[in-house]
Write a protein that binds this DNA or RNA. Structure first.
Lengths: 156, 156
DNA sequence: TCGAATAGTTCGATGGTCGAAATGCTAACC
DNA sequence: GGTTAGCATTTCGACCATCGAACTATTCGA
């Protein structure tokens, strides 16, 4: 009933469903997928106290520098992100999110959090620990396979 | 250690990682994200014995009819998908995948499957059953929230 | 101070996506 | 049986996200 292929299928379903959710949410707030991804990265880095630069954002998103400029132009004109020249090295730009973006983040996570909290009530702490180990192992496995693919030659 | 917020974080990480994997794999085989998504849907429906039509594919992907035609043109000229007029209603087109696509699917899932199988060796059948329940509950929670958002009004 | 290197932006071209109109086909009605 | 209405898909013209290359501004080393 819960063999490996079932788990793979469930995992894929979950990813697809989450994907739909992100896409719908972004569309609903007038943001493209790329903008959503960028905003999440910028928010994470900002919250962590090490604001992202356009260059490192481009690297993290596998996007060209010019495309990244466009993304930031959109996010800046929509009022989610602010660009600030670094005080130590004036070549660099630091990206910071403002209240509008934080509000967006809350709107994004609040319903998800409450839905998950309700859905996970039936699980004991011990089971949750097992699940956490499972998720971590799966993340690492995915990253490993991705690394292998990135290193091997293409076929077309 | 494994409270709800940790699980949410892990879940998001897993989705992001899977996303990267799909993107990289597609890019590596000369397929866009949209093409990858479409191919998965077409393969699933074909395997299930109820081949997809362009119209229903468009609906499933939240894509316009014309964009769907472009996707199918690309998939057909790259030799992954074939269009066949339905014999009963010649307005309709049935989409079928061929050996090249099946081979692509194997290349996609084989490394993932083996990596997951290895990563999940440490879990007992009972734990796997718990994990399956967890994944299912999370899928349903995500779908529910998505449905709520789809029904409420936009703010811009 | 002058060149090389780095960070980011601007510019022109490519191509995926969209809405609207066109095409091909089926079913219903008189 | 011919005509009309309706549906599935494709073609057309326009828009805009992305790309690579050239450009500006700034820093660092000799």
């Amino acid at each position: 009933m819960a063999d490996n292929s079932t788990l793979v299928r469930l995992l894929r379903q979950l990813v697809v469903e989450s994907d739909h959710f992100v896409g719908l949410f972004g569309e609903w707030h007038g943001l493209h997928r790329t903008d959503m991804n960028a905003l999440v990265l910028i928010m994470d880095a900002d919250r962590r106290g090490t604001p992202l630069s356009p260059g490192r954002l481009a690297g993290a998103m596998h996007l060209s520098a010019s495309a990244t400029t466009s993304v930031l132009d959109r996010l800046e004109s929509s009022g989610h992100v602010e660009r600030a020249r670094s005080t130590t090295d004036r070549r660099k730009v630091e990206l910071r999110v403002n209240d509008k973006a934080l509000d967006l983040g809350r709107r994004f996570f609040a319903p998800l959090n409450s839905a998950y909290t309700a859905a996970w009530e039936a699980f004991s702490d011990e089971e949750k620990a097992t699940i956490a180990r499972f998720l971590l192992a799966s993340i690492e496995a995915t990253a490993t396979v991705r690394g292998e693919i990135a290193g091997s030659p293409g076929d077309r």
